[in-house]
Each structure stands twice: as structure tokens, then as C-alpha cells.
């Protein structure tokens, strides 16, 4: 439950702020100078704060478009990511966002136009070549769409830049905003799934698998490109049976050949994030499983990971044509 709203004084009168505050009119509003006053102090307990996070409305000054980490993306040469929000509505135990920031508050930047200017500049710096912009790295792209109207701004923007492609990564079912827009070929909405047991144990607040499949179906039927992200694959004693059941459930509803892309990756976190989240949740079985450090990344021991990926890959390729399958190779 959202507890309160912090607003930077300088953007209190921004039209997007006013519209947000109108929507959040039941919550106490606290004016601040800069979001860092609330978001950055060290003496915050992420786990406690996550129970009743606040929304911080702020202005982003720089770093609107950032080069994507190596191995991120769908094979394009020019990959960037951007975050109009930091932190997520959901509370997935495996997510690096738990260890990313001091605060669990949701930070929303309202100066979309500055993101747009930077997107145009970046796209223009790679003329005639496709440039991918990924949203959903530091937040869920669609979970807050009814409030932020993110898609209403960014989808027409991408459509207006000839060489821009955008992936919206989400676990949300909030597709109503998109369904009001004209489908765009260069926008892919990628839905993440983990198997039913991992979903039940680790994805707090995330809509059910069935509801997300339904959201995908509605987008596909409306002519939108949709991707499937089977990431992270989490180890547990029944992961094979559960993973197969997940695929059966998805492809009973959706046409596999109409998928834009399917990717797969096992659970992994950087060493720092792993250390932070396992301290935050010392009682969490996921972090008590055997893990190994490889190249700064904590993940399953090589043999276990290989076995998991091989199994899941084989299962995926029984449903999906190979050309739209993209393994996530973080080992480099």
C-alpha cells in the first residue's frame, strides 16, 4: 500500500506532476528539494519500507539513456536502457532491485520530454542502424502505466524515430493503455515468467500466470509484438516438471510461431547485489542454495546451471521455432 507522496518543489507545477497528484489525492504530499534526500540516505531498511513504500515524483537531470550491460538484449549492435522509474511495484525475491537502492520507494521521473530528446540524439548517432531501447531494467515498464501514462508518451515517440526499437519488459497485466494505441512494429512487449512454484514462493504481488498470459493474448490479438522472457529459471526439486507445466500453460493459449522472441536465463546476481539481498532476507531459501561466483556474478554451480539451461532450452524448442529463441549468455 502506497503510504505518501514526496514531490520535488521544482516540478510541483509540472503538468505530469499535477495529473499524478490528482490521481493520488488521498495520500499525504510532502515537498522535498531533491529526491536524493529521501531516496539515498543509508539508514533505511528496504525490507520494512517495501511494506508501505512511498512514491517520489522527481526530475531526472542526466543519464536518461544508458548503454545496456554486455549480453543484455536480443542480439542488436546498439543497445541502450532507460528508466522513467526506479524500483518496482512488485516484490520478487530474486530481483536485483532489492539490492540496488537504499530505498524501496518508487521514484518516478516526470520529465519524459528530456528522455525523448536523448533517445532521438542516441538514435541519430547510429544512422541507418537499428538501435534498441530497453525499458524495464530498473522498474516494471507497465505496472504503473495507468498512473504514469508511460506508453502514451514513449510508444508514439519510438514510432517517430525510424531506427528506434523498444522493448518493454514487464510482469504486469496493465495493457489497457497500449490497447488504445495503434500497434507499432518496432515495439516489443516482453513478459517475464518463472515456473508456478517460483512464482508462488518468490514473486510477491505479481499477477497470476494465467492473467499475464491473458494480457499477452490481448496484445497479440490487437497486433502488438510480444516476447516471452523465461527468466530467471530458479532451481528447486520440481523445477523440470513445473517449467514444462508453465510452457504448456502458455502455449495452450498463445501461438508460439507468432512470438517475436523467447529468451531464457538462470537466476544470477552480481556479487554485491547477492550479498545485499541475502543479508536483507537471511531466511530466504533461494539464497541458501549452492551458488558460485563467476566473473563477479553469483549463480548456480556450472554443472547445475548447464543442466537447467539444457533442460529448459530443449523444452522451449519443442514449442518455439529456433530463430526466435535467444539464450541469455551472461558468462561472456
Amino acid at each position: 500500500m502506497t503510504s505518501r507522496v514526496y514531490v520535488e518543489s521544482s516540478i510541483r507545477q509540472h503538468p505530469r506532476t499535477r495529473q499524478l497528484l490528482q490521481r493520488l489525492n488521498k495520500l499525504p504530499v510532502i515537498e522535498i528539494e531533491h529526491y536524493g534526500e529521501v531516496f539515498n540516505p543509508r539508514s533505511q531498511n528496504f525490507r520494512l519500507q517495501k511494506k508501505n513504500p512511498a512514491i517520489i515524483i522527481a526530475h531526472k537531470n542526466k543519464g536518461h539513456m544508458l548503454a545496456a550491460p554486455e549480453g543484455y538484449g536480443l542480439g542488436g549492435d546498439h543497445n541502450y536502457y532507460f528508466s522513467h522509474m526506479l524500483n518496482c511495484l512488485y516484490d520478487c525475491r530474486y530481483c536485483f532491485l532489492q539490492g540496488m537502492y537504499q530505498s524501496a520507494h518508487q521514484l518516478l521521473f516526470v520529465n519524459f520530454e528530456d528522455f525523448g530528446d536523448e533517445m532521438r540524439r542516441v538514435a541519430a548517432s547510429h544512422p541507418q542502424q537499428p538501435v534498441w531501447f530497453y525499458s524495464g531494467y530498473d522498474c516494471d515498464s507497465l505496472a504503473n502505466d495507468p498512473m504514469t501514462r508511460f506508453t502514451e508518451f514513449f510508444i508514439p515517440l519510438v514510432a517517430s524515430i525510424d531506427n528506434a526499437w523498444m522493448e518493454l519488459r514487464t510482469k504486469s497485466t496493465q495493457v489497457r493503455g497500449m490497447l488504445k494505441l495503434k500497434p507499432q512494429d518496432r515495439v516489443v512487449t516482453a513478459f517475464s515468467f518463472s515456473d508456478p512454484v517460483s512464482h508462488a514462493q518468490l514473486e510477491n504481488g505479481v499477477p497470476s500466470i494465467a492473467k499475464r498470459i491473458d494480457a499477452m493474448r490481448r496484445l497479440m490479438e490487437a497486433g502488438w509484438k510480444v516476447g516471452l522472457r523465461l527468466d530467471p529459471i530458479v532451481y528447486h526439486v520440481n523445477y523440470q516438471v513445473e517449467f514444462k507445466a508453465l510452457l504448456e500453460q502458455i502455449f495452450a493459449e498463445l501461438d508460439a510461431t507468432a512470438m517475436h522472441s523467447v529468451s531464457l536465463g538462470s537466476f544470477r546476481l552480481t556479487r554485491d547485489h547477492f550479498r545485499k539481498v541475502s543479508r536483507l532476507y537471511p531466511d530466504e531459501p533461494l539464497f541458501a542454495q549452492p551458488m558460485e561466483l563467476d566473473n563477479g556474478i553469483v549463480s548456480y554451480p556450472v554443472e547445475r546451471e548447464r543442466e537447467m539451461i539444457e533442460f529448459c532450452e530443449t523444452a522451449v524448442l519443442q514449442h518455439v521455432p529456433r530463430h526466435c529463441y535467444h539464450p541469455c549468455n551472461w558468462h561472456g
Binding site: P28, V38, N45
Partner: peptide
């Protein structure tokens, strides 16, 4: 209190909401 401002140095502190049981807030 949801915001505490030190009049001497201007430093601001923000007690964080963590429970649903809240009184009216004030700076």
C-alpha cells in the same frame, strides 16, 4: 513528523512510513 528541518544548518530528515497505522503528518 514526516519531515524534520534543522533551522541552523538546513539539514532535513525523513522518518520513513513503515506501518499502516499513521497519525496526521507534519513538517
Amino acid at each position: 513528523l514526516h519531515q524534520v528541518i534543522d533551522a541552523d544548518d538546513g539539514h532535513r530528515y525523513y522518518p520513513a512510513p513503515a506501518s499502516a497505522v499513521e497519525l496526521d503528518g507534519s513538517a
